[in-house]
Design a protein around this nucleic acid. Structure first.
Lengths: 117, 117
DNA sequence: GCATTATTTCTATAATCGTCGAATTATGGA
DNA sequence: TCCATAATTCGACGATTATAGAAATAATGC
């Protein structure tokens, strides 16, 4: 992931409502949610929501597809992966392992020797 | 980590120069770097740099201490950890493991099917 | 075609952002 | 003390942001 891509993704997530939107979409899973449902869940005006969706889509964090009258937005986990990977690398840059522990989520175990640099 | 803290930290990193500053400080390690050295390395005006340091400090991502005439800024890995942990959790919220592969730094292989990046 | 629903586009606005020039504070050395 | 160095504070500026109201577009059913 490029620096500029990281900045774009970070900026997309650096706003209350957008972070809420993204978390909701992550929770919803790969099938996503219609824009209207997101609007209802988070109590956001439809045009405001479009504005935020645009930011997320530009950052590659969500996809949009039409389904009947609705437009379904879904989280793009790949991009989120790349972002976390980027942050992890840059966080651990000089002092490897400093951030590694935090990167072991819930049930998934890697329990491997961390990067040594 | 609270949602608002995450937003603050994300916003702090969501800017080219600030992300560069933070990466430089991470590279420099726990001892940190004098502001002037950062300014020289990234070719930033001292007052502009102060502005950015303030954002990073407010987000808890860096610390500042005076040493003679210089003020030494250092990355706070702890906060970065919390941020990555927060993102990892919220990224994998509905679909645990979806982001796990990305959290394995550099040379560590999981040899599990991984989400395409 | 017309009405309804779902979402976007357009226009406007207050607030915040990133940068700059100039002045100011703080420290150390002659 | 006076001077040079290091960083901050202040005031200003154009640019971007987040939101809102009104109108426009797209899809569906009658």
């Amino acid at each position: 992931m490029e620096v500029s891509d990281a900045v774009t993704a970070l900026a997309a997530l650096a706003q209350d409502n957008r972070l809420d939107v993204f978390r909701l979409l992550v929770q919803a899973g790969p099938e996503g949610l219609p824009a209207g449902e997101v609007a209802a869940a988070l109590d956001l005006a439809p045009n405001t929501l479009t504005f935020h969706f645009d930011k997320l889509r530009t950052a590659g964090l969500v996809t949009a597809r039409r389904e009947g009258r609705s437009i379904i937005y879904a989280a793009r986990f790949e991009t989120m992966n790349s972002l976390i990977a980027y942050l992890t690398e840059n966080c651990c840059g000089g002092d490897a392992g400093a951030c590694a522990p935090a990167c072991t989520p819930k049930s998934v175990r890697t329990k491997r020797a961390r990067v040594q640099a």
